[in-house]
Design a protein around this nucleic acid. Structure first.
Lengths: 207, 207
DNA sequence: CGACTTCTGCGGCGATCGATACAGAAGTCG
DNA sequence: CGACTTCTGTATCGATCGCCGCAGAAGTCG
């Protein structure tokens, strides 16, 4: 579902045009969700960061949950875009190296919140947030599946030893990624995390 | 700071005695915080699970934040007690193995919430929760330091190669632990996580 | 211009948040 | 028993939560 009504470019050219840039506003909202989580980000804080009123937010995005879904899409295609790129590396080791390096960079970028939006936005929630928690569980599971399938292909291609279990290898890599994200959210520095990632991949492919 | 007033055993024997078991109530509160996080656990839900009124909770524990601090202490001495025990293993590999095994067991116990209270209770918070978030950052950092110091001792004792960096090794192990906790919170099963932990430690000590 | 459509700001909705005031119940003391 | 201390249930506080009704502003159409 796209942003409702006007928006630059496509249909709905009659009536008063929107007075703000919906993309820019969504970017700001994503950063707030990233820093404070889904339930920790209040409408007041979100709309203040977006520079619009709650009415305009509801007209453009629907409600808080819909806004979060759009913000997660934006995160997937922006800060988290290193994942699909990493999967195109020619070797499994190259894939793993690129994933961890991308995770370290994205979770410790100075101008952005620390950590990973997909991990820290809704690990625990009140009753009202269950759907968003499940959405993020599915988001993480999708990332895991992409990695597992890539490693399966590496086994099929002979890039990884035939006795390798792509499931376990993907679990291992995602665990390291989540661990990096949690440590980044806790203030651990980029260089230290990158050194750790390098050391972790010095033994490959585990067994 | 102990539980205020009565409590079975020590001072304050005059006046009406407390009508509930404070330890039992704290256990229930810990489980609610574990499942829903600090801000996701409302007073209504907490006191309902504890079987007492808000008035009794405030009289016994002070306020929500103080209740959480007590619950975290209880978590540290209960579900998380595998950590200090693991540090007493004779070899660094034994320590690492015990830590990961303890993490897997604690984060996937059927009768308890999935995941780790110390990781998922307050990764992101609203303004009101900053102190609790910082408390948990310090809690995790304390765990990391204990592991790092244990590995430093292993290097000093010749159990680990002299070129080993205890900092990186501790970062690696905590990252795996956090990664296991996040996956457990997402519903990944115990056996799969334990297999992954086993595979991760098949190469040791990394470099 | 006038008709029409859409967006925006103000104000407020009911619900829930964490936290308390108050009075009576339930005990231990002399 | 009566004086005293503490605990408990009810009822509610002000603040904030996500959300929306309404009227006017600001545009595009003919």
């Amino acid at each position: 579902m796209e942003t409702k009504q006007s928006g630059p470019g496509q249909g709905g050219l009659i009536g008063r045009p929107r007075g703000f840039d919906a993309d820019e506003a969504l970017e700001r909202a994503m950063l707030v969700f990233w820093e404070h989580g889904y339930e920790g980000a209040s409408l007041a804080r979100l709309t203040n960061a977006m520079g619009i009123s709650t009415t305009s937010m509801y007209a453009a995005f629907g409600n808080k949950e819909a806004l979060f879904r759009k913000a997660l899409e934006r995160y997937t295609e922006g800060p988290s875009a290193y994942l699909p790129r990493a999967l195109e590396e020619p070797t499994a080791l190259g894939v793993a190296t690129a994933i961890l390096a991308g995770t370290v960079r994205t979770t410790t970028r100075p101008a952005q919140p620390n950590g990973c939006l997909g991990v820290q936005s809704a690990l625990t929630v009140s009753d009202a947030g269950k759907e968003v928690r499940d959405l993020l569980v599915a988001w993480r599971d999708n990332g895991y599946s992409l990695i597992r399938e890539r490693f399966q292909r590496a086994v099929d291609d002979g890039d990884l030893p035939p006795e390798t279990d792509p499931r376990l290898l993907a679990r291992y890599l995602t665990a390291l990624g989540y661990g990096i994200a949690v440590q980044a959210a806790s203030g651990v520095g980029r260089d230290e995390l990158q050194e750790m990632a390098d050391a972790a991949l010095r033994n490959w492919p585990l067994s």
